[in-house]
């Protein structure tokens, strides 16, 4: 239990460092601002209790907010994503998964399942984030395009990360 907690804490710190030190410095275009730290929320086990899920996502957003001086933006986005994740997983996993130690990942559920899951979750996160950032509905279609493109790039980075990470984990263990 403690070991699990530490593993996830390390994972969160690692992903935040990747986000802040690497991904935030990539200048692809004004349309593409990927956020890969959401991979932490995506990869929490299915057995996490709903209230824990909501709180964890809120706190993750708060940490991200303090590092990007945007109070509330990431909190709102992560919170919405964490809340909707509960219902998404309830609908797409079976009883066995929910009681066991199932982790929503490529190695356990396959790449197609994970891509659909990742896309919908990241899309929700980016949708809330970018529209709150612009704070209104002017530039509506530009923002929508930014949401879509950024979602695709975030998803691509997260899928690549998962493939690398889990391949090596399998060969080692």
């Amino acid at each position: 239990m403690i070991l699990d907690f530490l593993t996830y804490l390390l994972k969160l710190i690692g992903l935040l460092l990747v986000q802040l030190l690497v991904v935030n410095n990539i200048e692809l275009s004004g349309y593409i601002n990927p956020f890969v730290y959401v991979a932490f929320l995506l990869s929490l086990p299915v057995s996490v209790k709903p209230w824990q899920m909501v709180l964890i996502s809120f706190l993750t957003g708060a940490i991200m907010d303090s590092f990007s001086s945007t109070p509330g933006l990431h909190m709102a986005a992560c919170n919405a994503m964490g809340f909707l994740r509960i219902y998404y997983l309830r609908a797409t996993t079976n009883k066995e998964d929910q009681e066991g130690r199932m982790i929503p990942s490529i190695s356990q559920k396959g790449i197609v399942w994970f891509t659909v899951y990742g896309f919908s979750m990241i899309f929700i996160h980016h949708l809330v984030l970018f529209f709150l950032e612009i704070y209104g509905f002017h530039e509506f279609f530009t923002t929508l395009l930014r949401v879509l493109l950024s979602t695709l790039v975030s998803l691509l980075l997260i899928v690549i990360g998962q493939l690398l990470f889990f391949r090596s984990a399998k060969t080692n263990g």
């Binding site: 709903p50 209230w51 909501v54 709180l55 809120f58 957003g61 907010d65 303090s66 001086s69 945007t70 109070p71 509330g72 933006l73 909190m75 709102a76 919170n79 919405a80 964490g82 809340f83 509960i86 709150l132 704070y135």
Partner: peptide, 27 residues
């Protein structure tokens, strides 16, 4: 769970509102 979600979401909206309107941004 829904109410917890709602409360936290309201908290973050308060932050965003204060940040956009007052520029004080105590956070």
């Amino acid at each position: 769970v829904f109410f917890l979600f709602l409360i936290l979401e309201i908290v973050s909206f308060v932050f965003i509102y204060r940040f956009n309107h007052y520029q004080k941004a105590s956070f």
